[in-house]
Design a protein around this nucleic acid. Structure first.
Lengths: 339, 339
DNA sequence: GTGAAAGCGCTAACAG
DNA sequence: CTGTTAGCGCTTTCAC
């Protein structure tokens, strides 16, 4: 009889070792660990042997046999972004309550990297994946074909894939009502890739409020600090008639604060700013930022829940987004005076 | 001959299907996909068949056979904390360059959860893990016994496990020199669990500067916003003779800013503040915060590199930590006058 | 209740 | 170069 002893890491203890040590068949050991019908007496014996041998069932063996991988895959554009970190935290919290491991990948908002990570997920036999998609609908065809349960979060690039969204349109509308109430008319929207829905909501709400949307005031940046800063600074310098900005993400909001500071544009005196996402620093910022808040953790938690929930077909859910007024917006003053 | 057609997700395409379709043996297909010696002609044939069948090798099968899991596990206390998010980003970046998936778990700085996640990693046959440890040395015994390659990051609870650390002692020393240079004597250190090395460095540096360390001025908080705020506010209210604080993490720094604001303690006029970690909002804060900066991404990247690097035994590395002076510190004024 | 045996998809000998 | 075969650790009929 072979006992494992400290330092004998030669071979992993397997179900066979336990069976042998307990004097039972492997099937019985399996039943003990996966809740099959076993007599109390045998269960005790097996558990004792397992403990003695420091046995852990191998997820690899089980998954291979069951032709599934278990666990959930998570794809986000950038884990250092407060919103996505919150989303990831929600997914992790939900997964933990199910005892499922989470494999995460960052796409950098780059369709090519996304495609690559999707491939990895398929190879891993991952069978559920929560993703903030960045590529087009076609990108997800292989995953769907492979039978993965995919749930989109925040964005939704295919109607046949359920998602957890936030009511950004409503958030934008509220923000715009607030801004126009303060007298602002020349309002810009600073967007990132994949925010077309927000941009559409912006122009819609604008026209609903009787303001002609100026295409020049809708600008796009890539998902990097550099790009965000460059675009923000460019906007501020080229359009001095601007009196308010809505930033589509906290990265963009950060860029506006920095660029404004650099260009000696005072917030909220010269420029009003509303940004997406109530990250912790919004309150610490000078001035504290008025934000369109979305429940990041909830989005992640619900998405993971949808992914994990067996059985019935998941449905798309939309969570609310609301305005939190702080001190970054003020009444409109004479346009263009700050240059 | 069975062709897969859209919607026929009955069974995953296996190496056997490809072998059959290409008219070769399974071993040959395996060789094609894992770089064995194959004639160009056969390779073409196999690749064509694989493409036609939309074949992806199963990592499950491969890993089971090779008795390893591949990929790397990552354990951090809190993914929404800017520093750990940066660390995770570094790990993910490195892992991506090796084509390895990363499974992440958050421990909430709770040894019990940590133990549980370590168990999960073992069951997953994970063979490398990068962790910011929160429990004691014993906690890691099962992982080590199971033959996992573990690399610690930021903290190090066992001498026999290599780690990637930052030179916090030097950072604390520099910060203290700066503070004492400004005339401060009653300086507090706000710490979290696992920051004993920093606390030690703090008292050492203090005595080296000829200041008697006051044990009451070293306070500990748990890793939650609530706990951090409560402890910060308590400190501020109980010790009005305090003129400077070093916060051991950005969570703690945030709490001090908020608590000071609430208690009408002005920074830097009434209170000087230096916090650990140069998170993006440190610059946006009012006032911009002087920080002890540590290269979060690098720590993660190097740790992942150590974990992934085969062969020679990894050695512990220490990365620099430096002071970035901004506007949250000022000369000491009459103590206690702000209460 | 319990054991024996057949694979899950793949790779590593070992022959040819 | 290439095919055959024997498992990796586990679950799951199917007998007993």
């Amino acid at each position: 009889m072979v006992e494992s002893f400290p330092g004998a890491r030669s071979r992993r203890t397997t179900i066979k070792d336990v069976a042998e040590a307990a004097g039972v068949g492997v099937a019985t050991v399996s039943r003990v660990f996966s809740g099959g019908p076993v007599s109390d007496e045998t269960r005790e014996k097996v558990l004792a042997a397992a403990a003695r041998l420091d046995y852990r069932p191998s997820a690899l063996g089980r998954n291979l046999r069951q032709r599934r991988r278990g666990g959930i895959g998570l794809l986000v554009p950038d884990i250092t972004d407060g919103f996505y970190a919150g989303l990831a935290d929600g997914v992790l919290a939900c997964a933990r309550s199910y005892g499922e491991p989470v494999t995460v990948g960052v796409t950098g908002d780059d369709p090519e990297q996304e495609a690559e990570m999707i491939g990895t997920m398929i190879e891993q036999s991952m069978d559920r994946i929560v993703a903030v998609p960045t590529g087009d609908a076609e990108m997800w065809a292989p995953a769907l074909r492979a039978g993965l349960e995919v749930i989109f979060a925040e964005r939704r690039v295919r109607p046949d894939v359920p998602g957890v969204l936030t009511d950004d349109a409503s958030g934008v509308r509220t923000a715009l009502e607030y801004l126009t109430g303060l007298g602002h008319r020349r309002i810009a929207f600073l967007a990132q890739r994949g925010q077309s829905r927000r941009v559409a909501a912006f122009t819609d709400a604008l026209t609903a409020l009787g303001i002609q949307a100026d295409p020049e005031l809708i600008v796009h940046a890539r998902a990097s600090r550099d790009s965000a800063y460059a675009v923000a600074a460019g906007l501020l310098q080229s359009r001095t008639d601007l009196t308010a900005i809505i930033a589509g993400s906290n990265l963009l909001g950060e860029a506006v604060v920095l660029a404004a500071r650099e260009l000696a544009v005072r917030i909220p005196r010269d420029l009003s700013l509303i940004m997406f996402d109530d990250v912790p620093w919004a309150e610490l910022c000078s001035p504290p930022l008025t934000v369109i808040a979305r429940p990041a953790q909830d989005v992640g938690y619900r998405a993971a829940e949808l992914a994990l929930r067996q059985g019935r077909r998941p449905k798309t859910v939309t969570l609310p987004a609301g305005l939190i007024v702080r001190a970054s917006c003020g009444p409109r003053r004479a346009a263009g005076y700050w240059r």
